[in-house]
Structures are given as C-alpha cells and as structure tokens.
Design a binder for these strands. Structure first.
Length: 267
DNA sequence: CTATAAACCTGCTGGC
DNA sequence: TGCCAGCAGGTTTATA
C-alpha cells in the first residue's frame, strides 16, 4: 500500500503522538506479523520509552531505550489509535502504552511486519543496504546507477537504489518527466536523468502535502484518508485524457507491475 | 546481470 | 445470485 509519502504522513503523526510514551506491553494477535532479530520476545518492550520516530524509504524506525523497531506496512498495513471509529477486524498487534493509549496495527493481507532489533543500526532490507532518500541521492551517483540495461521503471522501484518509490509515484514521476517506463535506463541522458530525479522529489513532496494517496486501505495515523489520488495524472487513469495532449492514457506491464503512461508524451 | 514467476495473504470487481 | 479469473500501493526468493 503505502509509499514514501504515505509512510511520512504516518511518521509525522507518530512523532507527535508516541514520542516519550512508555510501552507497557505488546499484544500479538497474529504471530507472523511480528519478528524478533535476536534471542528475546515481546516482554523486552515493557517499560521502554519511544525516543524517536524515524523513516527510511517505506520503513518506519522507532528508537526505544534498549531496542529498535522497524515497521513495514507492505500492501494493507494501517496504524491508528482509538479503533471505535475504525474497523476493528484484521488487527494483528496492539501496542499498549503506560498512559493507557493503544496503538493498533491493522493489516488485511498480513504482509506487514514489525521487527524488533537489538539497539544499534537496524537493517531495513533483507540482504542489502537500502538506497538513498530521493532528496539525498547525489546526481552523479544517480546517473551512475542508470548505466544498466534494465527498464527505467524497474530502477525507480529498486529500493536498494532509491528508497521509497513505489508504483504510483514511479508512474507519476515518469509522466512528469516525459519518459516512457520501458526505456532502458542507460538510454537516458544526463538532462533526462536529472529531470526524472527532480520529478520524483516533486511528486513525493506533493503526495505528503495532500496527506498521501488513498485508493483503498491507506489511512494517515489520525485515521484520515489522503487526497493525493485526486491529483494524479496517470496512475489508475487508463483510457482517460492526458492532461498535456488529451490522448488516452495506456496501461502496460513493466517490471511485473501495471504501468500507466501517455504514449504520445512519454518517449 | 536481467527477467520472470512464485510466494506470502485477503478482498473486491467485473464478466458470464 | 453465484462462480471464477484477475487485480491490488510490496519485498524476497527461486528459477531460467
């Protein structure tokens, strides 16, 4: 579900709401939704304070006194307090704070994970380092990463290169910069590469500003839907008119994902 | 190195 | 109304 902008909206919510809170307990309702990187269990969290709420790409990183928590919402994960006005089915874990507040994790498809790490620099991706935030990626390195035969969209979606780009914002950034999703990454010149990275930054800033994109499950931590879906140009707009040339938006499969683009504006 | 599929899961939609 | 295929914002692993 959520890409960088949606996770950032949730991060800001958590940052306002759970920093300095002390954990009392973690109730695990579905075992596989929680993993432990080390020889301990949920009871280690008791009494620990939330020191900070950070984010790397689509991963949330909660720093505790003696552990680090990494949360990935995958496709349908949601985090919120006060479930009386939210669905109360599909809850996978509940974090109880000593203040009495409860943070709920709801996840219909059960792909999301809370991973408890020992204190230190937690690993986000499984077998490799996670890539740069779009705003921190150096232009020269970005251009270097494009020296591959892969489709440009596959590179955009690769979390080891850029962190946080998913299917929606990849399609939007490619549209904004006039680049066809199937173009070989190595065929982009310096100018196109720069434009594309700038487009990623702009479209993500816009996504954050509008509170994220809600097609089905996404909710900000306050339980509110985002409105970025009303400001998209191509994603999920197959057949409707291109904003630039009025031609129909196409949909094809690239890198195993459905991809939406304007055949006339994106070469 | 790259590309594709499958696995992990459930629910919704559209066609017949 | 019922059934079934296909699809969904993601990541990892296996296979070609």
């Amino acid at each position: 579900m959520p890409e960088l902008p949606e996770v950032e909206v949730i991060r800001r919510f958590l940052n306002r709401n759970i920093v300095q809170e002390k954990i009392d307990s973690l109730d695990i309702l579905y075992d596989r939704s929680v993993e432990f990187e080390g020889d301990f269990n949920a009871s280690v969290l008791c009494g620990q304070r939330i020191c900070f709420v950070d984010r790397k790409g689509k991963y949330l990183h909660l720093g505790l006194d003696r552990n680090d928590l990494v949360i990935h919402l995958r496709m349908t994960g949601q985090l919120y307090f006060e479930p009386e006005r939210e669905p109360k089915d599909h809850i996978r874990w509940v974090m109880n704070f000593q203040s009495g507040r409860k943070l709920y994790f709801r996840d219909v498809r059960k792909f999301g994970r809370l991973v408890v790490h020992p204190k230190g620099a937690p690993k986000f991706c499984k077998n490799a380092e996670i890539g740069f935030e779009p705003w921190e990626m150096p232009l020269a390195l970005w251009f270097d990463e494009l020296k591959t035969e892969r489709a440009i969209k596959a590179v955009l979606l690769d979390q080891h290169i850029l962190a946080g780009v998913g299917n929606i914002y990849a399609d939007e950034a490619l549209y904004q910069s006039g680049i066809h999703p199937e173009r070989k990454a190595s065929s982009l010149d310096q100018h196109e590469a720069n434009n594309l990275l700038m487009a990623v930054r702009v479209v993500m800033e816009k996504g954050i500003r509008f509170g994220g994109t809600t097609f089905r499950d996404y909710l900000g931590g306050d339980g509110k839907k985002g409105s970025m879906q009303d400001h998209l140009s191509v994603y999920q707009k197959t057949g409707s008119k291109c904003r630039k040339c009025s031609g129909p938006i196409s949909r094809i499969k690239v890198a195993g994902r459905s991809s939406h683009f304007c055949p006339r504006c994106q070469k």
